[in-house]
Design a protein around this nucleic acid. Sequence first.
DNA 1: AGGTATCGTGCAATTTCGTGCATGGTCAAG
DNA 2: CTTGACCATGCACGAAATTGCACGATACCT
Lengths: 260, 260
Amino acid sequence: MVKIFRAKAMLTSQRKQHILAILQRDGQVIAKAVSQELALSEDTIRRDLRELAAEGLLQRVHGGALPASPAVADFASRNHIAADGKARIGRAAAQMIGDGQIAIVDGGTTAVQLTRQLPASLHATIVTHSPSVAVELALHPHVEVILIGGRLFKHSVVTMGTAALAALAHIRADLFFMGVTGVHAQAGLSTGDLEEAHMKRALMQHASETIVLASAEKIGAASAYVIAPLAEASGIITETTIGDAQLAPLRGAGIVITQV
Amino acid sequence: MVKIFRAKAMLTSQRKQHILAILQRDGQVIAKAVSQELALSEDTIRRDLRELAAEGLLQRVHGGALPASPAVADFASRNHIAADGKARIGRAAAQMIGDGQIAIVDGGTTAVQLTRQLPASLHATIVTHSPSVAVELALHPHVEVILIGGRLFKHSVVTMGTAALAALAHIRADLFFMGVTGVHAQAGLSTGDLEEAHMKRALMQHASETIVLASAEKIGAASAYVIAPLAEASGIITETTIGDAQLAPLRGAGIVITQV
DNA sequence: AGGTATCGTGCAATTTCGTGCATGGTCAAG
DNA sequence: CTTGACCATGCACGAAATTGCACGATACCT
């Protein structure tokens, strides 16, 4: 038996993990450097990069790869953002918006994360009843921002009331990214304020699809006021920390559950 | 500001992000400076700038580039300029609002200062078309906030357009605190954007009294678009650094000039 | 008006990319 | 044990991208 002096054989999937680790650590991957480090041809690395890009785990660029997040940030803050669950949810949501689409964005911290991670090159229209979201988006070079006016509900920092409903009447959106405080198989989607529940339901009715943004603690919870049954949403974006046991009751409602 | 640059490979797309980061930080990009910092030819940088400009992410100018949307650099830098004077103006304006009154607050940095200095005990209604003002006021314990919705004009971070005018139709306020970029005896009150001028005029018409908030550099200046003649305002709040020689032409229009 | 800096374009050298194909290894059915 | 399917890998080659340089045109400054 000949002893192998080369580094221990590395399975393909291990190598891909290694590439992702480099990406996490450095914020970049250079195909040539990896091929030298692992003593493999650049072809192999390029193939890996291509496949990882196809899975959406990174963004392929000439010479190597960058994080999938199109967010403009220095490495340090990007790593910090990547660690935060709400930011990951926001990023996943941001990537669902395509050029030319009209999306309604709810209030809340997750929604603000969403706006921060919209690609700078995106040309879309964002409708929101959250002044915080509007202020964030004022920095974006291309998105058109429509602010729903009305009486400000200070607790959530969003506008509500009849004026808001009236302003909404003229709007028909492709997507609605909704924040909730409870996602429960029987109780459905719920929140802690009655008027807020009405407002969210109205927003749902003015969008073709509703995507629920639910960080880990919301899954399986139910709040006082019901917005709508689970089945009326098209998708839920939540965290990977949620076990399948908790998600199982939510399936079967025809909802796409995305974990990030 | 001194950047330690490791001689580490930089992918093309990263370089573009770097350029955008410089733009965000400094409000400008100088092609030559970037080429030296990154040890690349100016040609390469100019090519990048051209491509970024084609994507609409910046505005190409001779020698470098500027933000595509003037909102970015503007709002950030304006926040630091003459903070003292604007804060004093804001405080004086805040003290003019009495319990039970309804006041319209314009956009701009001075207006944000106003909201920060509203007494915590004040019970009043604030109407605004600035999401920044709304976010500030969400922290106030007693003021009712009405947000005028509409299309967001990013440069000033206020809503405008027909939707905003429609929302305004139902409102009758006691006071309107207006920001301007020019206060001139003959040219009157003016600002740098046509639609903004229309919006401000509409706001004036929905308030019994209009108080102009004009920091020192605005006095005696005239911008491209006229909002209204001087006499249609009830008062002006400006700084004590303004000499009487500059104020003299403004008197006689029946306006109360307050210096703080 | 003249000088200087910057710009855009064409071109060549180099690097990187994608694809087709050959090689070697693993695994399971025969 | 053999054979064939399958897969990962490396190599070859043409295509595409990136970069720096040259050159004439243009814009800015004094």
